[in-house]
Computed example of a mutant assay.
Amino acid sequence: MPAHHEQHPALPPVSRQSPAELGGPGSVLLRQRRDHAELDRLMNAHRAAAPGGPERDRLWHDFVRLVFSHAFAEETVLWPVLRRVAPDGEELTARVEEEHQAVNDLLARVEKAPGDPRRQEWAEEAFRFVREDIRDEEDVLLPRLRATLDDRQLRRVGAAWEAVRLSAPTHPHPAVSRRPPGNALAGIPLSGFDRLRDRFPTAGPTARRTALALGALAATGAVVLGARRTSRRR
């Protein structure tokens, strides 16, 4: 089940703070809140769209692309910063990474079973995880960053976050690590392949099997490269 965090009384959620209070234009907190609002819009629009229609399919693809590019940027840029600056950063990020993995697994299940009647049930379950994840981040994790980073630092992190988000994978890859350097190493080949899939969304089973094989290969390569780096440091 999604994690529930208690809000620190001295740290108001980012949803209640003005743009200036969140670091101004370019702040990672504003960029996060922008994506969260768009995810909420897509989930609501998907639920309201006609089942089986092209509009619902389009909204679903937009939702999936944003979920994975957003989460990848968090895991590559944002959560490592939180682990450095917050005493409980390790615990907080481990919990939200579990939420990300649950969403990844659900959306992978949807993607691998295009004709399964349970797809909408799985989609609704993924929506619940995403909404809980957004609440945890806006009420607990992001306020911790606001409390420890100044405006200039928030904008610097925001620029790095945006650069990663724009080049991130856009489809589920459950075997890929949730943390650097493994996720970043695997994300390079996966991102290019995912964006080709986004341009040709009607690809058949062969393309899907190729994507899964590439994901496994990228994950294996990340593990090998990570092990080599570790052995060099010893």
Results as ranks from 00 to 15, higher is better:
residue 178 R to G: 06
residue 181 P to L: 08
residue 230 T to L: 15
residue 4 H to K: 11
residue 19 P to M: 08
residue 67 V to F: 10
residue 157 V to A: 09
residue 84 R to N: 04
residue 90 E to A: 14
residue 163 A to I: 07
residue 201 P to S: 10
residue 118 R to F: 01
residue 203 A to Y: 09
residue 104 N to A: 13
residue 184 A to D: 09
residue 222 A to K: 06
residue 153 Q to E: 15
residue 46 H to D: 05
residue 14 V to K: 03
residue 229 R to T: 04
residue 163 A to P: 03
residue 170 T to Q: 09
residue 112 K to E: 13
residue 152 R to V: 11
residue 145 L to F: 11
residue 172 P to L: 07
residue 210 T to G: 07
residue 194 D to F: 06
residue 82 L to T: 07
residue 1 M to A: 13
residue 144 R to F: 08
residue 214 L to P: 00
residue 88 D to M: 02
residue 67 V to H: 00
residue 6 E to Q: 14
residue 128 R to Y: 01
residue 31 R to S: 13
residue 132 E to Y: 05
residue 49 A to I: 08
residue 45 A to T: 07
residue 19 P to F: 05
residue 188 I to D: 02
residue 233 R to H: 12
residue 182 G to A: 02
residue 37 A to C: 09
residue 35 D to A: 14
residue 152 R to W: 01
residue 198 D to I: 10
residue 137 E to Q: 15
residue 99 E to K: 03
residue 198 D to C: 12
residue 28 V to D: 00
residue 184 A to I: 00
residue 211 A to S: 12
residue 47 R to H: 07
residue 180 P to S: 09
residue 141 L to T: 10
residue 4 H to I: 11
residue 151 D to I: 04
residue 161 W to Q: 11
residue 61 H to S: 14
residue 150 D to N: 14
residue 192 G to L: 14
residue 58 R to K: 14
residue 117 P to A: 04
residue 152 R to P: 05
residue 171 H to P: 00
residue 122 W to T: 06
residue 132 E to R: 12
residue 211 A to D: 09
residue 168 A to H: 03
residue 144 R to W: 15
residue 37 A to V: 01
residue 181 P to K: 02
residue 9 P to A: 05
residue 220 T to F: 01
residue 176 V to G: 08
residue 157 V to R: 00
residue 152 R to C: 00
